[in-house]
Amino acid sequence: MKKPLELQVNGAVKTVEVDPEEPLLYVLREEFSLNGPKFGCGLHQCGSCLVLVDGEASYTCRIPCASFEGKKIQSIEGLSNGDKLHVLQEAFFEVQAAQCGYCVNGMMIAALELLEGNSNPKMQEIKSALNRVICRCGTHSRFIKAVKKATSSNSNL
C-alpha cells in the first residue's frame, strides 16, 4: 500500500508516494532518477548501493525507505556544487580511478565518510574504509591513490 513519504535527498525535501517497505535504493533510482547508487548483490555486502545517511555510509538495497524519513540522505549526485565537482570527484577523475564504474558510487561514498571524519587518513585507514566495497575490476590501488590525492589537494574536505 502506497503512502506519502517525505525524504531529504541531496539537500532538498521531497515527498513521494511509495510503499514504505520498498528499499530506499529503488526509490532513489526510480522516483528521484538518481543512478549513482546501484543494485549489486542485494545483501548489503558489495557496497554498490551506498549513500551517506546523516554522514554515515549506509546500504540502501534492503532497508525500507520509511526508515530514512527525517534523515539527511546524500548520493554522489549531491556532491558537486553546480558545475564545480567535489574534490573527491576531481581526484577520482584525475587518477582514472574507475574501470567499469559499477563500484565507483560505493567507493566514493565510503571515501567521503572517511574524509569527513578524518581529513588526513593514514594508508591503512583508507584501505579499511574502501574494503567494504567490492571492486570486480581490481582497481583498488587507483581508488586509494584518488583518496590520497583528495586529501593532499584540498584541506576543506
Rank of each mutant, 00 (worst) to 15 (best):
G11S: 09
N156W: 02
D19I: 09
S152F: 06
N154I: 01
G36C: 09
R29M: 06
R132C: 11
L85I: 01
L5K: 03
Q89I: 07
N10G: 12
C135M: 08
A66L: 13
D54S: 12
S153A: 12
T151M: 10
G42L: 05
K72I: 04
E6T: 15
V18G: 05
S58N: 09
L24V: 04
A97L: 00
L85R: 03
N131D: 15
N81A: 13
V13G: 13
L79Q: 02
G11Q: 12
I109L: 10
M123C: 03
L28K: 05
T151C: 12
K84Y: 11
G40Y: 02
K127D: 09
V18D: 08
L24C: 03
N120G: 10
F93G: 06
V95M: 08
L115C: 05
E6F: 04
C46Q: 08
S155I: 10
T60A: 02
C103W: 08
A98C: 08
A66C: 14
E77F: 07
K127Q: 14
A97Q: 04
E6H: 11
Q89M: 12
H140G: 03
N131P: 01
A129G: 07
F39T: 00
E30L: 07
K14T: 13
C41F: 09
C137V: 03
L85Y: 10
L112I: 09
C65T: 14
G106H: 02
Q45A: 15
G40S: 06
G106Y: 04
C46L: 09
V27P: 04
E31Y: 13
A97R: 01
I134W: 11
E94N: 13
H86R: 08
C135V: 04
D19E: 15
F39W: 11
F93V: 13
L85C: 09
V9N: 05
E17S: 15
M107S: 03
V27M: 09
R132S: 14
H86V: 06
T151W: 00
R29C: 03
C100D: 01
H44A: 14
L25E: 06
G70C: 06
H44C: 13
M108H: 04
I73A: 06
P37H: 07
A111R: 00
A12L: 14
N120L: 12
S33Y: 14
A110V: 05
D19M: 08
E77Q: 15
F32S: 02
S80C: 12
V16S: 04
